[in-house]
Design a protein around this nucleic acid. Sequence first.
DNA 1: GCCGTTTTCGGCCCGACTGTTTTCAGTCG
Length: 571
Amino acid sequence: MELANMFQMIATILEIKGESGFKVNANIKVARVLEELVEDIRSIDDPTSIDGIGKSSAKKIQQFIETGIVPEFNELADSIPSGLLDVMRVQGLGPKTVGRLWKEAEVVDLSTLREAIDDGRLESLPRMGRKTIDNISDALAFLESSAGRKRIGKAMPIAEAIIALLRAIEGVLQIEFAGSLRRGKETIGDIDILASTDEPVLLADSFCSMSNVTKILAQGQTKCSVRIDAGMQVDLRIVENSAFGAAMLYFTGSKEHNVALRERAIQQGKRLNEYGLFEDDGDETPPQQRGVDPIARSEEEIYAALKSPWIPAELREDRGELDDKDLGNLITEKDIKCDLHCHTIASDGHMTIEELAMYAIARGYHTIAVTDHSQSSAQANGLKPDRLRKHIDAIHEVNEALKEITILAGSEVDILTNGELDYDDELLALLDIVVASPHVSLHQSSSDATTRLLKAIEHPLVHIIGHPTGRIINKRRGLEPNMQTLIDAAVATNTALELNANSLRLDLRDTHVKAAVEAGAMISVNTDAHVPEHFDQLRYGIGTARRGWLTPAGCINCFSHEDLTAWLDRA
DNA sequence: GCCGTTTTCGGCCCGACTGTTTTCAGTCG
């Protein structure tokens, strides 16, 4: 993590210093590759075997691992004020302007930028008009007031509400969200909406005058950008109806996927932009401006013309999805046949056993597991052994009474700091299902966390490891075990790793799921429902699962009742 | 700085909008 950050900083510093954009991009790519790496970089003999890492970066990585010092980075860092990296985060300020602000107005960080705005220092600079300065001032205030990317669970309902509002505007033909929201990312930078309409001016006006708009950043014929009161930016792109598919492809991204796709087009003598896929006729002017018809318009047509299968949006991250591999049939919400991690009023849930069962029946599940907290989770009203025994009897009673569904008596048993479980084996053996989860000591070292979780995975009575890292998105980093080691152990012991679908958690995360899928470990997608609404969080878990290339065959929640029973009874 | 089904050099995605410009640089996605 630290290492990825270093390469990101190198990229930004090089940018400010006016180095080649290609060099900058190369460093950004190294940062991204390291960030997404599931294995411990220390355990990789030759980093250049990883796509995007060349000799120069490998040397820096080696220096970092061996000494913790990378001389080239230190030199770079010393060459500019460190606060300029923060200034680069201000919307509208890029490397050129930041470089000028530094050299010509003595701006070295966010607070000196504020001073420079307030004392009028900027006004004397060339190409610094009133509007530009006002925009910088606003963007600075916005940066200070909002904390970056928002959880998908927050962004999605906002996006859906905006789309529902705009869909009703006269003339609108098609309107969808694109961007990271469509790709199902765990956090969303800004909401991208794509529309086609017979009345573009009316749509643009309606969009910019929504009641939650706090500032209009741009308003043009085809592109509008606003800030809304939830502290997010929303972009609306308006395209011709015939170009909607190509535009969806483009605005869904990711940027890295688009670049890879365009390079593929060029290799095949074609040219791809948001208006479609064109034959490259050597003319510099964009083909759509010359009235040239595209050879492919929809997403499906464009992928097909580029000799690739259609790629689900969640996979478009340039993580090998264009390598002509079989992408399989990715898991969908309707493949989920049971939820194996839920709470009742016995611990910190708000539903009775019966209510839980009713909601599960309404979703068409064949099985629901009652997994209340164990004794150590006192704050969650965890069950002491005698209460658990009674709870098991109560669950079995309701199970007898309800023929429409199987209710499993389970527990979400704490994995204690040392890896031991919070109940003895004799008690655990009475349960139909055991979900073992870490809740405390979430700041322990990577090696301690690995040992701790490994012990739980290898426990013969444990079926599922619940939210393995314990992270809370944007709030708590959680454990950082060697995930590859845990995955290998999960495969060996046939223990499932949970993908907790709650949008606060999404734990395992997408890259972990992908590594687990590649290794053949079973995944369990559960909502960890405490209240009825939590069942609706499943969509975010499924988005993350798809981003991890998960298929129904790799997910125990997709098993038939019979197969699940057999899997739970495994020796 | 990285990479290779036109390979070890010479490329590296593409278009819209803004502000301050008389023709475009900078930024963004």
